[in-house]
Amino acid sequence: MDLVERYLQFAGSTLDETGQIGVRYFRQPIDIAQKADASPVTVADIEIEAMIRDRIAQAYPSHGILGEEQDSVNPSAELCWVIDPIDGTKSFISGMPLWGTLIALLKDSRPVFGIIDVPALGERYVSTLGRGTERNGQSIRTSNCDELRACNMFATSPDMFSATEFQVFDSLSRRARFRRFGGDCYTYAMLAAGKIDAVIEAGLKPYDYLPVAPIVTGAGGFMTDWNGKPLTPSSDGRVIAAATPELHRALLEETVKLQQTEIKFAAS
């Protein structure tokens, strides 16, 4: 067994445990706190991340950790784990089953693998560098949509965009076949599974986009920032994910044009 496979098995067994925590609290009375940025956090978020961090510290004490609920630990380490204990906390609180736990392992700031674990639905999406994307062990692929006018486009919430960013998204998405909001990490899972054609978002953190990027690309899709650059821990949180290179290119070209137009308009 190579090291990557060993790390992957470690992540999978850890998620088997954390999934039980999430399901135990899901749709039950639960205390909700607000973080400094006004986003909600629950005891489930805190317990899940604490368990993952504890497992990593015991098994791989030299590795770095970048998580949502606690301070980073040695983030410049050659190998660094990225954790989002509950991506979609608002969905979790609302009883919607589309929340998930996200994990990625980075080597020199690039994902080696990514995982989207969706305990309420019993689905786990895994992509390892060079091995494709699987849902519960079965290979999945993105759609073959290659035109803006033919795609269905998603974003988690209009509230995540700045005013200028939303003008870009609004102009672009109104030219798509249709657009929808909601879904959090599950939209990227459905993009990888060929059900959604494009996702355009802003305001994301590294623990939001680094674990899902391998899921999309491993299934045949493309995912970059709004300028077409690869996603790294220092990216600005604006992402374009698409089912095909042709669709990604079309979205990227239009996004760049619209950004320039909106910036000129705002400055005038």
Results as ranks from 00 to 15, higher is better:
115 I>D: 03
174 R>C: 06
180 R>C: 10
213 A>P: 00
188 Y>S: 00
107 K>T: 07
160 M>N: 14
140 I>S: 01
93 I>N: 02
118 V>Q: 01
121 L>N: 03
101 T>F: 03
192 A>F: 04
78 E>I: 10
208 D>C: 11
175 R>P: 00
135 R>C: 09
90 K>Q: 15
216 V>N: 00
86 I>G: 07
114 G>Q: 05
175 R>H: 11
109 S>Y: 11
131 R>G: 04
114 G>K: 04
92 F>E: 00
127 S>N: 00
196 I>W: 04
150 A>W: 11
115 I>L: 12
124 R>F: 02
221 G>R: 08
142 T>D: 00
169 F>W: 10
164 T>P: 01
168 V>P: 00
100 G>I: 04
102 L>W: 09
108 D>F: 11
93 I>A: 03
96 M>F: 09
172 L>C: 02
155 A>R: 03
149 R>N: 13
170 D>F: 09
138 Q>L: 11
162 S>L: 13
210 L>G: 06
188 Y>W: 11
88 G>V: 07
142 T>H: 02
159 D>A: 15
75 P>D: 12
98 L>V: 09
75 P>S: 13
127 S>Y: 07
205 K>Q: 15
144 N>K: 12
202 A>E: 12
96 M>L: 14
86 I>H: 06
113 F>W: 12
213 A>R: 11
177 R>I: 05
150 A>H: 13
199 V>M: 04
193 A>D: 06
123 E>G: 01
161 F>C: 06
79 L>W: 11
141 R>K: 12
133 T>S: 01
81 W>S: 07
218 G>H: 06
125 Y>T: 04
178 F>A: 13
112 V>Y: 07
94 S>F: 09
189 A>Q: 02
97 P>Y: 11
206 P>R: 13
153 M>D: 02
162 S>D: 08
97 P>C: 12
182 G>Q: 08
118 V>E: 01
147 E>R: 15
158 P>K: 15
137 G>E: 05
196 I>H: 03
138 Q>Y: 06
103 I>Y: 07
154 F>W: 14
130 G>M: 14
150 A>P: 01
150 A>C: 12
182 G>K: 05
175 R>K: 14
81 W>E: 13
99 W>L: 00
141 R>E: 06
89 T>I: 12
174 R>K: 14
186 Y>T: 04
100 G>N: 04
167 Q>A: 03
187 T>E: 07
199 V>N: 01
124 R>P: 04
111 P>W: 14
100 G>M: 06
107 K>L: 12
92 F>V: 03
116 I>S: 02
161 F>D: 06
220 G>W: 10
200 I>L: 08
173 S>I: 08
213 A>L: 10
198 A>H: 02
165 E>L: 00
138 Q>W: 05
90 K>N: 13
183 G>D: 04
174 R>H: 12
112 V>M: 15
147 E>H: 15
162 S>G: 09
121 L>P: 01
157 S>L: 14
138 Q>N: 08
83 I>E: 06
102 L>I: 08
215 I>F: 09
83 I>T: 09
115 I>F: 10
146 D>V: 07
146 D>G: 05
214 P>T: 09
156 T>A: 12
106 L>M: 12
135 R>A: 05
181 F>V: 10
149 R>F: 11
84 D>S: 08
147 E>M: 15
97 P>S: 10
190 M>N: 06
